[in-house]
Design a protein around this nucleic acid. Structure first.
Length: 743
DNA sequence: GTGAATCATCTTTTT
DNA sequence: GATGATTCAC
């Protein structure tokens, strides 16, 4: 058999990592060091050495990364059968296979952020504590942290002794009880249950070790304690564990990721071979120099060189802008020029700290008619109609899921109102039944009037019927549910918005049909459990011929020839919430910036704005301290005019100022002027001349279809309309270019 | 029981 | 601004 690994192009260190066969291996890989290539080559080398593909398990950080690695492994070797997945997907697989040993039913629901919130709200209410101190968001954060550290409610209750701790323990316990009742697991539970399963069931652990004899974990610096234990458990028997990562690129501490995992790897596996990949094949020396200067400011790190291998390239540009519009305009113009010069739009990216910052950039890219795509967190599956449909499907899979019952019964008016559901809940609680079971027995709930009792029973019967039909393909069933539940009918009656919702549901059904085609033994349970782990970051298409807009977090693992990083201001990057959180938070923000910088191959431009609209408030900001760390000398005189005063704004400023918040602004984010000033609120240069749109006007666009006006920025000939289209996307359109009609 | 309208609250990053 | 809770009119 011909060699499938192209050895001649590997450096000595890379070779060492690729050909290390048995035993623990730690690959400390700097950015741009060819890490992904090393992993794929290593898989190929293992197979060449006689390991069956079936026995190799590679764990990546995102679904997208998994998908890509599957492709690459496929290209590199006849490697069909290598199991590539994320930690969460692997856990779902394991928990379904060993549901009994894990103490759960295999048709469990997976709760996303929204479901978790509803569930937590209920838990807090049931505990009857003062809810102002225990908000669902705050409690979920704490519970998540505990779970990531593998501390269950019993262990936590045992050690919590102060007032807050005791109530937290009570709520945690109640929350877990609700999840159990609903036969549901949240994201963190997937990890916790798997870790405990491996800990408590040696036979399961051994069976899995026989199945996965070689374990590879990428982005190991971002694993949390639970994931660390899972990896360790899986590898305990054979010790064939290879982890790769870069402590300098750890950006998920807030999610429980623990840099210590990578630092203690050598303690856990004393005979581990450590390979460092320090050469950088990606970026120009100019870019790497900035990256190095930045990261050495972190005190809690092992020093690692960034060794440049490419020609010097262009200077890194640091640009000051007056406000976020100027910033966006400058970037859009530069992008326009690059594309005109023949640069592939795929090779251009704009990174920002928070999703909300994409909007201004989008506006300017639209203005310049430049193609772009925004890579965002959830989007499609977060839409109401999609969640509604999935509510039915979840309930069909898992009749115990009360959260799904609530969702499904409330999709549209069906003569069952809030009061009736509350009475039903009361009955269900008393009798220890699920809501669906209670609905089937609604004739016994005397508090509910007769006609409503019948409607509840009809609903329960309908779900039972769907459940009977739920073996096999997903799409036909979904189609059937959509029609027979009456949801389709009610959307049809809802006018233009309903039409868009129907289209979205049809898109969902198409996606399900695609799943049916792709999967050998399609089942609704399997489908529901797989889409729960899907995020729209996975939908990023690197070949779309579009400029990519994304958060710095989403940029991890990607690379582009031309990179723009915006918002280098104190309070944005580093983020406001990390300013008072101590040095650890600050160091993570620095790493985040480091990740952004090192995505760039040839060109890097970093911008900051002296003024920015944040949460509807106009604020004056200060350059990020990180800028000075990479050699920014401060502002040059005459760079721009800083002699603005409030009156200038009242002329330029076209967005209504929001009501001032009660909180005092942090020292870093002083409002530039009082938002209470009515003068700043409106001053339309040309009120009444152009065909003015009003908020909530229904409009028709030649390409995007129907939509509703969310905002109208009246600037005469340059007016901009922000429209939320029924397709779900929101677009900012220049009035003079957009083919837009009032409906 | 339903749906529109108003009010209040929170606002990072994501599997 | 987005979302959720609450209120009010039918």
């Amino acid at each position: 058999m011909a060699s499938v690994v192209s050895v001649e192009h590997l450096t000595p260190s890379q070779k060492k990592a690729v050909y290390h066969k048995d035993g623990p291996l730690l690959v400390l890989a700097g950015p741009g060091s060819g890490k992904t290539r090393v992993i794929t080559c290593r898989i190929a080398a293992l197979i060449e050495a006689g390991v069956r593909p079936y026995h190799i398990c590679a764990i990546t950080f995102t679904n997208k990364a998994a998908e890509e690695m599957r492709l690459r492994v496929q290209q590199n070797a006849p490697a069909g059968g290598v199991y590539v997945s994320t930690f969460h997907a692997l856990c779902v697989r394991i928990l379904r296979q060993y549901a009994e040993q894990a103490g759960i039913a295999s048709n469990f629901s997976i709760y996303d952020v929204d479901d978790q919130k509803r569930c937590m709200k209920e838990a807090i209410a049931a505990c009857q504590v003062d809810s102002s101190n225990f908000t669902p968001a705050r409690m979920l954060e704490i519970v998540s942290r505990l779970k990531n550290d593998l501390e269950d409610e019993v262990a936590y209750a045992a050690r919590a002794d102060d007032y807050n701790g005791k109530y937290t323990a009570k709520i945690y316990t109640q929350y877990q009880k609700l999840l159990r009742q609903n036969n549901a697991l949240d994201f963190d539970d997937l990890l916790v249950k798997t870790a405990f399963l491996l800990r408590d069931c040696p036979d399961v652990r051994l069976e899995l070790s026989r199945r996965f004899q070689y374990l590879l974990v990428d982005e190991y610096q971002d694993t949390n304690h639970a994931q660390y234990q899972i990896a360790k458990g899986l590898a305990l028997a054979h010790r064939n564990i290879c982890v790769t990562g870069d402590p300098d690129q750890s950006i998920y501490r807030w999610r429980g990721a623990d840099i210590k995992n990578i630092l203690v790897f050598e303690k856990d596996w004393p005979d581990a071979v450590v390979v460092k990949l320090e050469e950088n094949f990606r970026s120009t020396p100019n870019i790497l120099e900035k990256a190095s200067r930045l990261i050495v400011a972190n005190t809690k790190r092992k020093h690692k060189e960034l060794i440049a291998t490419r020609p010097k390239g262009d200077e890194v540009i640091i640009e000051a802008c007056q406000d976020e519009t100027e910033e966006a305009r400058s970037i859009a113009e530069r992008i326009k020029k690059k594309i005109a010069d023949g640069v592939d739009p795929n090779e251009i990216a704009v990174f920002y700290r928070v999703n909300a910052m994409s909007r201004t950039i989008e506006e300017q890219l639209i203005r310049e008619r430049l193609p772009y795509q925004v890579v965002r967190g959830v989007e499609f599956y977060a839409r109401k109609e999609i969640r509604d449909m999935l509510g039915y499907m979840k309930l069909i899979v898992n009749p115990q899921d009360d959260i799904a019952f609530d969702r499904a019964i409330g999709t549209h008016p069906r003569g069952i109102g809030k009061t009736s559901v509350e009475r039903l809940e009361e009955y269900a609680r008393r009798n220890g039944q699920s809501l669906l079971a209670a609905a089937a027995n609604a004739h016994q709930v005397s508090a509910i009037n007769k006609p409503t009792q019948e409607r509840l029973r009809a609903f329960a019967a309908m779900i039972a019927k769907f459940r009977n039909d739920s073996g096999g393909a997903v799409a036909p069933l979904m189609d059937c549910v959509f029609a027979e539940s009456g949801y389709l009918e009610s959307l049809k009656a809802a006018g233009a918005e309903g039409v868009a919702a129907i289209e979205n549901v049809n898109e969902l059904i198409n996606a399900a049909a695609e799943y049916d085609r792709r999967t050998e033994n399609p089942s609704l349970t399997d489908y529901m459990q797989s889409i729960a782990l899907y995020s729209d970051t996975d939908a990023y298409n690197p070949d779309a011929g579009r400029v990519a807009l994304m958060t710095l977090h989403a940029a991890k693992g990607l690379e582009f020839d031309h990179v723009f990083i915006i918002g280098l201001e104190e309070g944005v990057l580093p983020h406001e919430r990390s300013l008072d959180g101590g040095t650890d938070d600050m160091e993570e923000e620095r790493r985040l910036f480091f990740v952004g910088i090192t995505r760039a191959r040839k060109f890097l431009q970093i911008t900051y704005a002296r003024h920015r609209v944040m949460r509807g408030q106009f604020i004056r900001s200060v350059p990020s301290p990180f800028l000075y760390e990479i050699g920014f000398a401060g502002e040059q005189k005459g760079d721009f005019d800083d002699n603005w005063d409030e009156d200038d704004f009242s002329d330029n400023w076209h967005r209504p100022a929001s009501r001032s918040s009660g909180r005092s602004p942090s020292s870093a984010l002083r409002p530039a002027f009082s938002s209470a000033k009515p003068a700043a609120v409106k001053s339309s240069p040309s009120a009444g001349k152009t065909p003015a749109y009003k908020v909530n006007d229904l409009v028709q666009h030649a390409k995007f279809g129907l939509g509703r006006v969310k905002e109208f920025l009246d600037m005469g000939a340059d007016s901009i309309v922000v429209v939320k289209f029924n397709s779900g996307q929101t677009k900012s359109l220049m009035l003079k270019y957009a083919k837009l009609d009032k409906v």
